[in-house]
């Protein structure tokens, strides 16, 4: 294990009853890095994100964050440690205003957070600050997810299909924002189907299939890898 890994996932398995969603996943994200996570539907990407963020406890294996064993910590504990995420299907606090959404996270953060107004301005949500979050469109709700995550001042950000459903123009905008966050020192693990988007925001990718990782390396190299090609074209 390299010493500069902020996150390491070691032999993580997860089964739901008889169904084994993860069969021993290993990966590392170095501090300040951005790792992409790709794979067909059902390959276990979101399950892995759920485990890292504490929503599920793994059936076996370890999750280390900042050198500390954090396996089985609860979501709010992970949030306090500096791990946060967005959701594939956005999960806003629908009855609260956009501002309150961010303030809840800010109020419960244990870390030196950003200011609500700065976050809303950064995500172009300032004008919507007093709207009920439930009335926003999906793209706006996704940004709000991100805003709530930023309010907890994460060291590691898990981005789960932020790009899906965005227009090409919005995609570029979001990619730019993620890159800005990286420059601020936030480490990222990005799940994404859109390869163009992934190429803009990540250095390396891990390809998963059927609950295990089958490739690690540059995105361009992945396209050449016979195993990867088989999964995406042959499956």
């Amino acid at each position: 294990m390299s010493s500069d890994a902020l996150l390491s996932v070691v032999g993580v398995e997860k089964s739901f009853g008889g169904f084994q969603a993860l069969r021993g996943v290993n990966l590392e994200v170095s501090k300040g890095g951005a790792l992409g996570l790709v794979g067909p539907n059902g390959s276990g990407k979101t399950t892995l994100i759920n485990i890292i963020s504490g929503i599920y406890a793994p059936t076996a294996g370890k999750v280390r964050f900042g050198g500390q064993d954090v396996t089985g910590r609860l979501p709010h504990q992970m949030s306090h440690l500096g791990v946060n995420r967005t959701f594939q299907v956005p999960k806003p606090f629908g009855s609260l205003t956009v501002r309150q959404n961010v303030e809840v996270a800010l109020g419960h953060s244990r870390r030196s957070g950003r200011k609500t107004d700065d976050i809303l301005a950064f995500l172009d949500l300032a004008e919507l600050a007093d709207r009920e979050a439930g009335s926003l469109n999906t793209a706006q709700q996704k940004l709000l997810d991100l805003g709530r995550a930023l309010a907890t001042d994460p060291q590691l950000l898990l981005v789960d299909e932020l790009g899906a459903g965005l227009s090409p123009a919005d995609l570029d905008l979001v990619a730019e924002k993620l890159n800005a966050l990286r420059r601020d020192g936030i480490t990222m693990l990005v799940v994404e189907h859109l390869m163009g988007f992934l190429g803009k925001v990540t250095d390396d990718v891990v390809v998963m299939n059927a609950g295990a990782e089958i490739f690690f390396g540059k995105l361009e190299a992945a396209a050449q890898d016979p195993k990867v090609v088989e999964v995406f074209l042959g499956g």
Binding site: G54, H76, S79, F93, L96, E103, H108, R110
Partner: peptide, 24 residues
């Protein structure tokens, strides 16, 4: 109070609330 807002957040979405750092 902040407590009340947190409760409402939990009602809307407990998972998001937990990720926002609320000990649900």
């Amino acid at each position: 109070s902040r407590f009340g807002t947190a409760l409402q957040a939990m009602r809307d979405d407990p998972v998001s609330a937990a990720m926002a750092g609320v000990p649900v």
